[in-house]
Amino acid sequence: MGKTVLIVDDSNTMRKIVSRALRQAGIDFSEILEAADGQLALDVLGSNEVDVVLSDINMPNMTGLEFLKAKSEDDAIKDIPVVMISTETGADIIDQAKALGAKGAIKKPFTPDLINEILSPLL
């Protein structure tokens, strides 16, 4: 059965690029959901069965790190794996993300092969 993924990024262009890369990565996704910031992502997780989340870090309203913290405090969604996908993948910010529960990080620009490599073990 296909998986459901949630893409969280304030850029419509980047959401479309990530969506295309997911289809090219060869992973069987039945549904690709989108949210433009962390708060909207929490709303989507509250009303959908999601298998994995790909989240940007720098976003308005609620950043990727704030999203991770809020998600970790909600028992209903805290175990859904999140992979950060961002231009900012320095060790300090990735350490913060992992401390808040992120399962990995993908740097923009990325390839479908890299998406597959990071996501497959989580599904």
Partner: peptide, 9 residues
């Protein structure tokens, strides 16, 4: 944004 991120790295 990606270009600046690449330069930062």
């Amino acid at each position: 944004n990606m270009l600046a991120g690449g330069l930062k790295e």
